[in-house]
């Protein structure tokens, strides 16, 4: 997520490669935690649309459908990517990731 932070653990530990991997895993967990917040934000946006007002400036239902289903699909794709990434990465040591 944040490439600037990558340098921090490099100097501390002798094995940069492993450290980098577990660092990536931590950020992956962060992403997993943030995903529902992103989802909630996307889903809350329709609250801002004008509703029940005059019929002229309302949002057409087809646009609303497009927006909601696109967001939905986007969330599913991110979750899918995370699922595959997590499967590859978490296999080795589950415990470390959990303690974070």
């Amino acid at each position: 997520m944040n490439s600037g932070e990558d340098r921090k653990p490099l100097g501390v530990r002798p094995s940069p490669f492993l450290e980098r991997q577990s660092y990536r895993r931590r950020r992956l967990m962060d992403a997993a935690r943030l995903l529902p917040i992103l989802g909630a934000a996307l889903v809350a946006i329709p609250l801002l649309w004008p509703s029940q007002g005059s019929s002229e400036d309302g949002v057409p239902l087809s646009s609303a459908i497009l927006y909601i289903f696109t967001c939905w699909a986007l969330l599913i794709v991110i979750s899918l990517i995370f699922g595959f990434a997590a499967r590859r990465m978490v296999v080795s040591d589950d415990a470390e990731a959990e303690s974070d």
């Binding site: 329709p46 509703s51 057409p60 239902l61």
Partner: peptide, 11 residues
């Protein structure tokens, strides 16, 4: 859809 009676965002 847009032409129907529920054709506007109305939630």
């Amino acid at each position: 859809i847009d032409a129907s009676e529920i054709g506007q965002w109305n939630v």
